[in-house]
Design a protein around this nucleic acid. Structure first.
Lengths: 341, 341
DNA sequence: GCATGCCGGGTTAACGTTAACCTTCGGAAT
DNA sequence: ATTCCGAAGGTTAACGTTAACCCGGCATGC
């Protein structure tokens, strides 16, 4: 780490190239009028001097930070990570920089992270879920920037939405199980107060059972997410102990479904003959294990792309002085009926 | 998205609270002299006005962006995600903001991402791996900021290092297999030119076999990372076809090891009796599957924490005018001998 | 009584860039 | 010949914050 050196600024480039600062700025932002000769000269000087533009200073002047804040419950979750990848890919193509924060599945934590991140003056915010504290909502409204809520369909959206119904997803899974002949279906979820998406999936399960005229009290709730994989194993044991007649277990996530399947192997319970297993998320482990786990697939990467595109679009329209009206984009889901059901 | 509103600045707060801008700034940065009365008054005014400080403007003035750039090959990999989590936790506690970029396992991509991210004037950079383009190195040296290379032990470090030897890790795994009686050991890696960590692990394998006086040409190289899980399954089939005598297969990653184990289930090859399987990374799927996969565990979260602490420390010392000398921190690894070996 | 020191707070001038406006000049249109 | 226009580029004044200095007043020590 060399000592603090004086780094060249746009002023140095201008002097060296024999032009004004604005000309250099125009070459750099491609926003302007400059002859090919001038462009070449400026670019050559930049290379010579090793000039690195300061985007933060530019942001201050242009009132566009070029940052998009993205809040996910956890980076260490393949589903959210894929969404982040989709977002990043789109933002990169538009010269924007992602500002990532994780909320640890907590709306209070989300509020704290949001407060911090808004100090960077992002041009847009992408949130996970539709549940936020009142203060979070207020901060977002005051910020006057585009907001996208993902992974959910909030009843009262802040601005744009790119998501799907977690209730409907569970509904579809129950339909699938019912179609394959299962009637004594259990649900293994997570603590509902912190995981609203999990709570929605549990609600979908209850509603769907009712629709099919089935009983619906075989529910085990594990702790707050991220629920360790091994707890899926413990949960299936517990479920079959409490309700031995259970013929199918729906899990709030592939992770716990996988834990359960592996525990069934250990206990020599044939799957799906003793009990069927279904998960959510189409994780690697569910897709590749043996037998392969029936699950719900969401295209998380595409959801990320759509969310980012919504932001890019809103940003462009706002720059053009247009008024942007909130849009709702539905992301399709597919039940992948595999070997465990 | 409401129309562009004029947001309050520190000037508005100062006027409203009847103090100077500097006093507000001092209250906010906690860097100064202010009576409790003044502090209360300023904080109350801030709350009333809904003032949100602009950290980018502050950065411009104080010449400390508060950003730390973090480059990982992929966010969608539990190991790197855990490191990112460790980094974030430490940075949060120190009022710093992570600026995340992914390099897709490519040094060329790393160069591009680095160039972009340096325009945000980060106070430090955390890299993954010790292999970089010449231009990347030059940019980092010119930036005059603290750099930490992780996940590796570069022969010629740029600055600080927080890592481990991928060669030694493989060496230890061969020792483990040898100790358990395996003598016909194969290695399933990835394309070595883009994945230098994978290449190092292959080198460790070769060296260790030589040390034990074993032959070492049972190597299959899959494509560039991230290698899909299913290719692990294809690879084990291929390995047992080409070298039927193989009694143990070492994988460059738990992901492919898992794919192989599941394929063995499908083919009814008993593991470890027909063939032993070992992975790397202590992923969820390897820890919880049946049988549980022998692997190498690195505390990725801690590695992230250490890297971030190194940056925070270097930043503090540089601020104090101290000269910081590069340090190398070794992260321990453990072979977890489980049921597949 | 006076020097000393420090606490609380103000003033000024950057930090590096770009928006907005202005100037010049050559050529096309009238 | 005159007008007009657009291309190329310059000038000025922010953007919102903080570093560095400065100042007054009160307590302390002798």
């Amino acid at each position: 780490m060399p000592g603090r050196v004086k780094r060249p600024t746009i002023k140095d480039v201008a002097r060296e190239a024999g032009v004004s600062m604005m000309t250099v700025s125009r070459v750099l932002t491609k926003k302007g009028r400059a002859s090919q000769d001038t462009i070449d000269k400026v670019l050559r000087t930049i290379e010579e001097l090793g000039y690195v533009p300061d985007l933060n200073a530019g942001a201050l002047s242009s009132r566009n930070s070029g940052f998009i804040a993205v809040l996910v419950p956890s980076v260490d979750n393949s589903n959210f990570a894929q969404s982040v990848r989709g977002i990043t890919d789109v933002l990169n193509d538009n010269g924007l920089q992602i500002l990532l924060g994780s909320t640890d599945f907590s709306v209070e934590r989300e509020e704290t992270v949001l407060e911090t991140i808004l100090k960077r003056r992002p041009d847009g915010v992408i949130l996970t879920g539709g549940n936020h504290t009142a203060r979070s909502r207020r901060m977002l409204e005051n910020a006057g920037i585009a907001v996208v809520e993902t992974w959910d369909l909030p009843a009262d959206p802040i601005d744009h939405v790119v998501g799907f119904s977690n209730v409907a997803v569970s509904h579809a899974m129950v339909d699938h199980l019912h179609e394959r002949g299962y009637r004594r279906i259990g649900f293994i979820g997570s603590s509902s107060d912190s995981d609203t998406r999990g709570a929605d999936r549990e609600r979908g399960y209850s509603e769907a059972l009712k629709k099919h005229g089935l009983e619906h009290h075989r529910v085990i709730r594990l702790g707050a997410p991220p629920v360790p994989v091994e707890q899926g194993g413990e949960a299936i044991v517990e479920m079959l102990r409490r309700w031995p007649e259970t013929d199918a277990a729906m899990f709030v996530s592939d992770r716990t479904a996988f834990g359960a399947l592996m525990e069934c192997h250990r206990c020599s319970w044939p799957v799906p003959d003793r009990v069927a297993i279904a998960g959510f998320g189409n994780f690697d482990m569910a897709r590749n294990c043996h037998p392969r786990i029936t699950t719900t697939a969401i295209d998380c990467y595409e959801m990320g792309r759509f969310a980012a595109e919504r932001i890019v679009d809103a940003r462009a329209r706002a720059a053009a002085g247009e008024r942007v009206k909130p849009e709702i984009t539905m992301i399709p889901y597919r039940i992948l009926g595999r070997q465990t059901t």
